[in-house]
């Protein structure tokens, strides 16, 4: 019996790939939401800069932080682009694997029914190609996990900036109320992103 007929066990791989697809689709949906919120942050950071300029010397510290928040929002956008690219690569790979698994299952049945035919050789080639796909998916999974970790660390830094902006807002005299509102909203949204990323890092897609 050839290796094609004995390994890998497609009856186990198919549900695993199906579950992977569901998980990665959920991650994709979550990331899409985070991307939308990140876009909001960009606008908010811009507003904070305008507000700090209007407040002038009464909000110098807030002005410095608002520039940092603007830089943070731009970095966050870059991170989100990386995450989106990786997640699309993962979805593509898992869906191709599901298609391969179906074809391989049918070829395996054919090889069992016609052991003298070339079906086993064809299956061997397909199994090798499938192995390459699995390796690629594992690499995408690792890259995605690293990208999520990097983004998470950056968002934590964003949280620190937002909290510092809240403190600086208190020194804004006549602008204190408006500055507190902007920095409070900023902090709230950064916290929302942080929570989402934390939950994504715990996804069974990474932990198995």
């Amino acid at each position: 019996m050839t290796t094609a007929l004995t390994t890998p066990d497609s009856s186990l791989q198919a549900p695993r790939a199906g579950t992977d697809l569901l998980r990665i689709v959920r991650i994709n949906e979550e990331i899409k939401q985070v991307v939308a919120v990140s876009f909001k942050i960009n606008i908010m950071a811009l507003n904070a800069i305008f507000l700090a300029k209007r407040a002038g010397t009464t909000a110098l510290g807030f002005g410095v932080l608002s520039n940092e928040l603007r830089a943070f929002s731009q970095d966050l956008r870059t991170c989100m682009e990386t995450l989106s690219g990786l997640i699309h690569e993962g979805v593509d790979e898992v869906s191709l694997m599901l298609q391969d698994l179906r074809f391989n299952r049918l070829l395996r049945e054919a090889a069992e029914l016609a052991p003298q035919s070339r079906a086993s050789a064809v299956l061997d080639n397909r199994d090798t190609a499938f192995g390459r796909r699995e390796e690629h998916l594992a690499a995408v999974r690792r890259q995605l996990r690293r990208a999520l970790d990097d983004t998470f660390r950056m968002v934590e830094l964003g949280g620190v900036l937002a909290k510092s902006a809240k403190i600086e807002a208190a020194y804004g005299q006549g602008f204190a109320g408006a500055l507190a509102q902007v920095s409070g909203e900023f902090d709230g949204i950064v916290e929302e992103i942080r929570t989402s990323l934390e939950s994504l890092r715990r996804s069974a897609f990474f932990t198995g």
């Binding site: 049918l106 054919a110 003298q116």
Partner: peptide, 19 residues
């Protein structure tokens, strides 16, 4: 159809080289 491929393939293989 693809679901009956194994059955058709094996029967055909008994008569003719699928390649």
């Amino acid at each position: 159809g693809s679901e009956i491929f194994p059955a058709v393939f094996s029967a055909l293989s008994a008569e003719f080289d699928p390649s």
